[in-house]
Design a protein around this nucleic acid. Structure first.
Length: 502
RNA sequence: UCCCCGAUAGCUCAAUUGGUAGAGCGGGCGGCUGUUAACCGCCAGGUCGUAGGUUCGAGCCCUACUCGGGGAGCCA
């Protein structure tokens, strides 16, 4: 049976032919002697038109009452029709219900995020999650393709590890047969070993951080790709990063434009993502933050928010007045629904208005030496239409393995890549400290146990070379590309702080 | 860990300022041959998160707790 099924995505090659598709009821609109059932089969959506008389009355009655997400096979003639979702529809001649679905909990109307997460096993079938999954698939392939095509060798780094790459406070500890171990936070340290064997390597896998972060940009388990390159300097690694990011954006644009449109992604701004990206040093970035330009920028933004707020409030009061008048019940209901949407928009804009002066204050009081805060990153990122590399952060604020800048010992040769339009950090990377003595001193300075890092130090003892790399978070990149507000929607089964739902 | 907001029908939300709980969607029944989150009529559906308190009277006020959302710090 399965081999005889046609996938919805290939209906365009079967116009006027009779085919059978297998799928689930996405939407059903019975209308007397005519039923429209939109079927999804994982490859797309297809509207099936069922006319009474063309099939048996019993089947007609069964299809008429079929609930959302019932599974079936359905046979009919493929017609091109612009009125139909996807552009093609099936004029049905036969159907077979496989499993009737009754009281499917997710309805076409809006739902709260808590409800949807608790129903994640079903929510994955929704159009939005499906689109994100398709884009993620392209993204992951593009990531692999870029490195594979540019002389990188894939190295699978371990998930159980003994030493930390980042802050020890964010480690998940596990009991490894009675011995202490932890889940990997980065494959970088292991990858450096491999880079000195293969020259150019990358790893791609899940990463775990026990940060107590409850924000739209954090997960405790996320996927990260990390390239590591021998014989490279900071300008060199930046060039790789911008070519890499430009490539994956181009691939997604080429292969997933319909999905991006459905998701409401800003396709025009993604088309601008081509090398070169902007480059700022941390010191330049901090000067921008403290400048009048930034204050003006934020003030302009505040005015815009206030104008938006006024517009929303005006609309709300208009609708409220209309609702007081003598109008039909259905109009009352429509107004109520619009009011709910508008009030939620209003709350969002009010939060922005409230945060704006705080962000302005934080920016104006920015002190050299601190790490860039979330709002600082957002400001820098909003002021640019392409990704921005921020380089040369203060040494104290950064990880022990980053190479001290020979020209300014207070900073390291690192970089963050901020995605444009306020999205913020997507990549973090650096040139690694390749001097044995400097690395040893830094390990001691941090209070780490040298014996744990002996193998890592060995890399600086036997044929050390300048090398570096970066890590790109898959979910954050996906959120940026798709315009999704929260990265928990960018992985099928998100793991969030204190919460594993299924 | 800190700050703010919330919890009312299966779901999303109302309840005119403390006076007997409403609507849409979803479900059930009926109608409709071109629907697009279809539409029209009828029906069922509630111990207002939990525990106290104030009051003649609490969904609404107060206290504590639980759960959730947003933001901060930190990060990819």
């Amino acid at each position: 049976m399965l081999k005889d099924l046609t996938r919805i995505s290939s209906l365009k090659d079967n116009i006027d032919k009779t085919v059978t598709i297998g799928g689930w009821v996405y939407h059903s609109r019975p209308s007397g002697k005519l039923i429209f059932i939109v079927v999804r089969d994982g490859s797309g959506l297809c509207q099936c038109v069922i006319e009474k008389g063309k099939i048996s009355d019993d089947l007609f009655e069964q299809l008429k009452k079929l609930g959302t997400e019932s599974s079936l096979t359905i046979t009919g003639t493929v017609k091109k029709d612009d009125r139909s979702v996807g552009g093609y529809e099936l004029v049905v001649t036969d159907a077979k219900v496989i499993c009737e679905s009754v009281d499917y909990p997710i309805t076409p109307k809006s739902h709260g995020i808590d409800f949807l997460l608790k129903n994640r096993h079903l929510h994955l079938r929704s159009q939005r999650q499906w689109c994100i999954g398709k884009v993620r698939h392209t993204l992951v392939n593009a990531i692999r393709q870029f490195f594979n095509d540019n002389g990188f060798t894939l190295i699978d780094t371990p998930i159980f590890t003994g030493i930390a790459g980042e802050e020890a406070g964010s480690l998940f500890n596990v009991d490894y047969f009675g011995m202490p171990a932890c889940l990997t936070q980065t494959g970088q340290l292991h990858l450096e070993c491999a880079a000195l064997s293969f020259g150019r390597v990358y790893c791609f896998g899940p990463t775990f951080r026990a940060e107590k972060s409850k924000t739209r940009r954090h997960l405790t388990e996320f996927w990260m790709v990390e390239p590591e390159v021998a014989f490279v300097d900071l300008p060199g690694i930046l060039e790789i990063a911008e070519n890499f990011v430009s490539f994956i954006v181009k691939e997604v644009l080429e292969k997933n434009e319909p999905e991006l449109k459905t998701l409401g992604a800003d396709i025009e701004s993604l088309k601008k993502i081509t090398p070169p990206f902007y480059r700022l040093t941390y010191t330049q970035a901090s000067e921008i933050l403290k400048s009048q330009k930034t204050q003006d920028f934020l003030a302009a933004q505040l005015n815009e928010f206030k104008a938006q707020k006024e517009q929303i409030e005006k609309k709300i009061s208009e609708l409220e007045n209309e609702a007081k008048g003598q109008i039909k019940q259905w109009r009352q209901d429509k107004i109520a629904a619009e009011l709910i949407d508008l009030r939620s928009d209003l709350a969002e804009i009010e939060t922005k208005i409230e945060n704006n002066p705080k962000h302005a204050k934080l920016a104006s009081e920015f002190e050299w030496g601190k790490d860039l805060g979330g709002s600082d990153e957002t400001i820098i990122s909003l002021m640019h239409d392409k990704p921005v590399f921020v380089t040369h952060y203060p040494r104290e604020a950064k990880a022990f393995y980053m190479k001290q800048d020979p020209e300014n010992p207070k900073v390291v040769q690192n970089f963050d890549m901020l995605a444009p339009a306020g999205f913020g950090e997507v990549i973090g990377g650096s040139i690694r400290e390749d001097s044995y003595d400097k690395l040893l001193a830094k390990i001691n300075e941090q209070g780490y146990k040298v014996e744990n890092y002996q193998w890592y130090l060995d890399l600086r003892k036997y044929g050390s070379v300048p090398h570096g790399g970066f890590g790109l978070g898959v979910e954050r990149t996906l959120a940026w590309l798709t315009g999704e507000k929260h990265i928990r929607q960018c992985i099928a089964f998100p793991r969030m702080m204190d919460k594993i739902l299924i």
